[in-house]
Design a protein around this nucleic acid. Structure first.
Length: 260
DNA sequence: ATGCCCTGCTGTGCAGGA
């Protein structure tokens, strides 16, 4: 079973690329982030065999989960702050898996309420992950984490040192997710530097591979033995009018129905 | 130290992204 995640930086602008990618890469599940609008093309996905659930708002944020298998929505909000109206969280059950799609707050500039919101959001997510872990729910969290976990996850620590994505506080909280019993799937399979999921549009960062790894899959440790691979598909970032992110794909063994 | 580039918005420059 292939589960993918892609921050598309406006679904409206990227719809043809997403449909084309679904047809060629044939994932079972695709998590989308940064829809950037309230209109959602349910029919375009249904016509190529995908169920779809989404959480959207005007102009900003927005997440959607597409699946060839039926989707059961568990929650469209992250617990812990009733007044948080951002469309950043979609928790679903697909087959035997809890699949959580996140668009974690960016947090820039550092030292503002936006940075505080990011840290608080990470605390809320940590609590949710701890609950699911305690209940032994097989869980996969995928999406745009807006965190550069380690120095090897960016081309230049010096370039990123003042950015919210690279600060010690969010990085410490990311390590907290791992300590809570979740595995960074890409890093589990690949220990080399130089593998990124995002490249700035400007300064020709793409052609020089000056990127950062901020789109992740965290997999509960109980599922670790079922993981068979995790890779980054750089293809879409090289297209005309690309998103600034590219997809990450997780491969996980399906459990035979009689075993569920 | 800042902007570079890209997107949405009922805009005509701005906010937000990372």
């Amino acid at each position: 079973m292939l589960i993918a995640s892609w921050n598309v930086n406006s679904l409206k602008s990227r719809l043809s690329q997403v449909v084309s990618w679904l047809k060629t890469q044939t994932p079972d599940v695709l998590l989308l982030q940064e829809l950037k609008g309230t209109e959602f093309p349910v029919d375009a996905f249904r016509s190529i065999g995908f169920h779809a659930e989404f959480v959207a708002q005007k102009a900003y944020n927005g997440v959607a989960t597409l699946s060839r298998h039926p989707i059961k929505v568990v929650s469209t909000t992250l617990a812990g702050n009733q007044s948080d109206s951002h469309a950043r969280y979609l928790e679903t059950t697909i087959k035997d898996l809890r699949i959580i799609n996140i668009y974690l707050p960016n947090g820039n500039p550092v030292g503002t309420e936006k940075f505080d919101y990011k840290l608080a959001w990470m605390e809320r997510l940590k609590k949710r992950l701890a609950i699911l872990k305690k209940r032994n729910v097989p869980t996969i969290v995928g999406g745009d984490f807006n965190v550069i976990p380690e120095d090897i996850d960016c081309f230049s620590p010096k370039y990123w040192k003042n950015d919210a994505l690279f600060q010690p506080e969010p990085r410490e909280r990311f390590r907290g997710f791992l300590k809570a019993g979740y595995v960074d799937a890409f890093r589990h399979f690949n220990h080399e530097p130089g593998h990124y999921t995002f490249w700035e549009y400007f300064l020709d960062h793409w052609s020089h591979n000056r990127g950062i790894r901020i789109d992740h899959f965290l997999v509960s440790s109980s599922l670790q033995a079922r993981m068979t691979g995790c890779l980054i598909d750089k293809g879409p970032r090289g297209l005309i009018k690309p998103s600034d992110h590219t997809p990450i794909i997780l491969a996980i063994k399906s459990v035979p129905p009689e075993m569920e």
